[in-house]
Design a binder for these strands. Structure first.
Length: 543
DNA sequence: AAGTAAAACAACCGCCTTATG
DNA sequence: GCATAAGGCGGTTGTTTTACT
């Protein structure tokens, strides 16, 4: 690609290399028009340098203080989608694709939420992938979802971003036995720790004829995206694909759909903690992710791997995520040897052919072809295993077992609550022992690492990692004295999706879950904890 | 080899929530 | 309580690359 001949701060009309006029933000006359369009390597360098010095956040100050003639939002987007260190580039693996399908079936077009469960992936990537998939599947006349991926009704939307949700349309899904549906309400499958769907017989699955379902709200199918304005087309496109229903057995009348492991490290907003330097506190997700994810081969991080090994992220098998930054803050790119890691190397298998070009040190090249190439072809090694076990249907429909699990998890939660307090205090006390390394990351002292591990170990033993999100949220809701949300913010360290462009706040998640649980188990929403077990008797028959 | 469609990617826009004064 | 700024999210559009004919 030809490069943009304009410098970063080049005044006057800004044009892309293709001659496409780059719009400006319409700044007032006399003020410098903000540049738009593709980023150059030089701009990237400036932005990275700025983040190195000042940390993430305060994006609008980038333009003021760094000379980068970009608006704050643009800077943030660039950083989040391309420059932040723990990005995982390249094509989606089959496991990731599978996970995306499941997540979309579960959440709808909540890209940020989905991204929070796909380490190193951005919401933009997922969104682009999905849109492309929708187009392709529609054109091919294939259903959007494999048959073995059942769409759970997306959780009720939180107070935020409810304006433009495109809900998937549940099809081939029957209301579980005994689950009565009030007239006019949504047919909502149980979304507790496990789902158990009743399926129609094989005949219906083969015929693509959706079984009768309870009335659904007039939400939009994902097929009704702007890419597919013809609504009529939607009806002809089944959502589930029997042909790819590898794990679905028509003979099995039902299965249990386990919820994916909750994302303990959902990005949180830490505005309130941002200090004058723009840094988040050392125990914030931002800093923890920086210290645990961004690791060069020469700077091994004990904490990160052990955190991963402890299964303290949503995708434990992403444990050996190694990253070598595709840039050098000193302004040059040193020769970076291919990883000698014994872990799975992506090699070329996941690389888009377009990214295989050699890196050219041309600061004016649209930088998308720089960092991407470097990071993909040379640096990233990753244990290419994504836990999709959560999506594997099981023929397990045992309410008693479910309740036992639930009780055990509640007990476990209670037992570690006290330990958590002490651990948090320990962490806080160690904040001032942390230092910054050359990359502007917080480097934890060895003692801090140890304490972190202790916390994580505690949580791990407390089965927090396996605690269904619904349960933890519900517990938080019931027992307001010790919000579970703190666990997320403190415990997770945000290793799985550090710096995600998206920030699914714990508040929104909790709100979602509270609403969700309230809708599912209204009897539980009570302060009389002792009565909760009895209320389980009022649960609808899940299976 | 050229043309075209599809896919992949990047970036922007508008709206919203949250934080802050 | 209100206004404003900052940040986040989802939708959309435009460009480039790839695959196919």
């Amino acid at each position: 690609m030809a490069h943009n001949g304009n410098g970063v701060n080049g005044g006057g009309a800004v044009h892309s290399s293709e001659g496409r006029p780059l719009e400006t933000s319409g700044a007032l006359e006399g003020t410098k028009a903000l540049k738009k369009g593709p980023w150059t390597a030089a701009e990237d360098q400036i932005l990275m340098e700025y983040v190195r010095k000042h940390g993430e956040g305060n994006w609008n100050s980038v333009q003021r203080n760094s000379g980068l003639n970009r608006c704050g939002k643009s800077c943030r987007l660039r950083w989040a989608n391309h420059l932040r260190p723990n990005l995982r580039k390249g094509a989606f693996t089959p496991e990731e694709e599978r996970l995306i399908l499941e997540l979309h079936a579960k959440y709808g077009n909540k890209w940020a939420r989905m991204a929070s469960q796909l380490p190193g992936r951005t919401d933009n990537e997922i969104k682009n992938y999905w849109n492309t998939r929708v187009k392709r599947r529609q054109r091919q006349g294939l259903p959007l979802y494999p048959l073995d991926i059942k769409q759970a009704q997306p959780q009720q939307q939180s107070h935020s971003h409810s304006r433009s949700l495109s809900y998937p349309q549940p099809t081939s899904l029957t209301i579980p036995t005994g689950l009565t549906q009030p007239a006019g309400t949504t047919a909502m499958p149980p979304t507790g720790p496990t789902f158990c769907f009743q399926f129609q017989t094989s005949s219906s699955s083969q015929s693509h004829e959706p079984p009768p379902i309870a009335p659904t709200p007039p939400h939009h199918s994902p097929l009704s995206s702007p890419h597919h304005p013809k609504s009529g087309h939607n009806h002809s496109l089944p959502l589930f694909d029997p042909a790819t229903a590898s794990s679905f057995s028509a003979s099995a009348p039902s299965f249990t759909f386990h919820r994916p492991t909750p994302t303990l490290g959902a990005p949180l907003r830490y505005k309130r903690y941002r200090d004058s330097f723009g840094f988040s506190p050392p125990d914030s997700p931002t800093t923890q992710r920086n210290s645990s994810i961004l690791r060069t081969s020469s700077m091994p991080d004990i904490g990160s791997n052990q955190q991963f090994a402890a299964g303290n992220i949503s995708m434990p098998d992403m444990a050996s995520f190694h990253f070598q930054p595709p840039w050098n803050f000193n302004g040059y790119l040193p020769p970076l040897p291919r990883s000698t890691s014994t872990q799975f190397d992506f090699g070329d298998s996941l690389l888009s052919p377009r990214t295989r070009s050699l890196y050219s040190v041309n600061s004016e090249l649209p930088s998308s072809q720089v960092s991407q190439t470097q990071s993909q072809s040379d640096q990233i090694t990753i244990d290419n295993k994504v836990d999709v076990a959560a999506a594997t249907p099981e023929t397990h429909c045992n309410n008693n077992g479910f309740l036992e699990e639930l009780l055990q998890e509640v007990e476990a939660l209670a037992s570690v609550a006290n330990t958590r307090k002490a651990a948090i205090g320990q962490l806080r006390s160690l904040e001032d022992k942390q230092v910054l390394d050359g990359y502007g990351r917080w480097l934890a002292t060895s003692s801090t690492d140890t304490s972190l591990l202790e916390v994580k170990s505690v949580h791990d033993h407390g089965h927090m990692n396996s605690m269904p999100e619904d349960l933890s949220k519900m517990f938080s809701f019931i027992s307001s004295t010790e919000p579970v949300s703190d666990w997320y913010s403190t415990d997770s360290g945000e290793p799985s999706n550090g710096g995600q462009s998206s920030g699914v706040t714990e508040a929104s998640l909790e709100f979602d879950m509270q609403k969700h649980m309230a809708s599912l188990f209204p009897a539980i929403v009570s302060t009389d904890h002792d009565r909760v077990p009895n209320n389980w008797d009022n649960l609808p028959g899940i299976c």
